[in-house]
Design a binder for these strands. Structure first.
Lengths: 67, 67
DNA sequence: AGCGAATGGGGTAATTAGGGTC
DNA sequence: TCTGTCCTAATTACCCCATTCG
């Protein structure tokens, strides 16, 4: 099949974001609930986070998105 | 009234959908089984998914079809 | 016909959501 | 105000192997 040039944003799991920030996954959830961090939801309700946004918050430097 | 000439909808494989949601392909299968996601079946029983539906579920915004 | 990769089944661990509390 | 922890239920991830896809 043809592999399209995925206009896809890389997503991170809650635990991955938590590891990057050295906090508890629950804290990451609180950030999402309070609107400090945007999130995508799986069909089961689990959250996924935009890697570019997380990187930017970590470094303070705007990251390049793949879209 | 606009008459839509049924176009050939782009189909995605389980692994492609899984990549978009950052989940395991098996999880996508469970979504299909539970009716959260509609699916087409190949003659061998493998599932294929509507790209427009997947993208809409991802972003929450209805996507424009190529028709 | 053969081959590598992906998928569908099942089962069982590991994460996550949500609320509440400290 | 912010964070870590405890608890239960739900969701997801990883393991096997047979079958299908390209």
């Amino acid at each position: 099949m043809t592999v399209k040039p995925a206009p896809t944003e890389n997503l991170l799991t809650p635990s991955e974001v938590a590891t990057l920030f050295r906090v508890d996954p629950k804290t990451v959830t609180r950030w999402a609930k309070s609107g400090k961090l945007s999130s995508i939801r799986t069909l089961g309700g689990h959250r996924r986070y935009l890697e570019s946004e997380v990187r930017e918050l970590l470094t303070g430097v705007p990251q390049q998105r793949s879209e």
